[in-house]
């Protein structure tokens, strides 16, 4: 079986199909309003977006700075002085895909529904 080319083509197709289903699951997963901002594995803030006023949060890491913006109950990375700016291109946090700034070890993500169930 391991020598059959068809077997390996099927493995490729299976990985691709599973990853597409997994993509849909991540995009469609329900999320609450509770957002967690953490750096290097430490939680810096846990916010409830539905109750937050519009404001900006500055986070520093080894002399580098990130500015997080909260506006109209949404959250995004406004500025970052890292080289790639992937976190800024991610835009507003809208699904289980977190906003990640790798160079500054910063993660903004929905905190999961357990907390929301308890609060709401």
């Amino acid at each position: 079986m391991i020598r059959s080319q068809k077997f390996w083509i099927c493995v490729c197709a299976a990985v691709f199909a599973l990853s597409l289903i997994w993509c849909a699951a991540v995009l469609l997963a329900p999320h609450g309003d509770s957002v967690r901002i953490s750096q290097d594995g430490r939680v810096l803030y846990t916010l409830d977006l539905s109750k937050e006023k519009d404001r900006r949060i500055e986070v520093e890491y080894q002399g580098r700075k990130n500015i997080i913006e909260i506006k109209d109950g949404r959250i995004r990375m406004l500025e970052a002085d890292c080289p790639d700016h992937v976190c800024i291109h991610t835009g507003w946090l809208s699904s289980d895909i977190p906003i990640v700034c790798l160079p500054n070890r910063l993660v903004i993500e929905f905190a999961g529904s357990d907390l929301d169930a308890a609060v709401g």
């Binding site: 990853s19 993509c23 070890r105 993660v107």
Partner: peptide
């Protein structure tokens, strides 16, 4: 590597997109 560097499982949400694009 990202899992260990970032110390969080949040990066796992990227996994399906990376895998699909990787294929």
């Amino acid at each position: 590597a990202a899992f260990f560097v970032m110390n969080t499982s949040a990066v796992l949400a990227y996994a399906p997109f990376l895998l699909a694009a990787g294929c």
